[in-house]
Amino acid sequence: MTTAGPSSPAELVGSHSGFRIAPFELARPSTVDETLALMREGATVMGGGLDLVDRMKAGLSPRCIASLSRVEALKAVSFDGQTLRIGAGTTHRCVSSDTQVNAVFPDLARIWSGIGNVRIRARGTVGGNLMAAMPAYEAATILAACGAEAVFGDVDGGARVVPAGQAVDTGGLLLYVAIAEPGKIRLSIDRSLRDYALVVRGDFADGRVIVALGGLGRNPLVAVGDKAEIPVLSGFHADYLSAVLPRLLERMRRG
């Protein structure tokens, strides 16, 4: 046991962060190409940093961190009349307050405004939430129910496109998520079992339904069909889904 001596008079609980983060080299790229070049050299990218800082406090020690805060290209939100693209570096707050998102996909804006809490939404990003692969994080489940795709820049050049609900092990730099024809999707969400399970239901204009069940592992479970049914892992989740899915449908119909 060590005792705080006169030279360190304030080592009390609450007087400082109790964790030591190992030193690292810092890079602050301003373009996607610069970021990819740093990743080729082994850099770890950091969005809002909420998750990464926590992991570093727990002992993760990346040699080099590339902060994405200056990569403006990753913060763009656009809609070309067909596809809504949300940059990986967009904060949750910016997603839910974005005028285009609100205009073309109001359900998404509303649901995104319930991610985490106001403090998390101010710094946390779409990409960070998705790539952290934490079961209780919501982005992958919400985006899976939209049938969204995640578009990655490959460190060796080129791009890779994967379903947003299976993005975590793709590798490369997540550039943006793309939602096709957002105007034809209604979304509803149930968070009543926060941290244990989360279900998002996407009702498409052509009658398709996508149900995404999150909170169970690195990726959400996703079922697609006319009457999507997820083969669930336990009686608990089966009961939860059978109780909540009709309620979500009802809520969606009421608008």
Binding site: R93, R119, I120, R123
Partner: peptide, 15 residues
């Protein structure tokens, strides 16, 4: 930070 609430324990100072 720039008027928005942030967790100072999980934000690196250089940001």
């Amino acid at each position: 930070l720039d008027g928005l609430p942030v967790a100072a324990c999980a934000t690196l100072a250089f940001e």
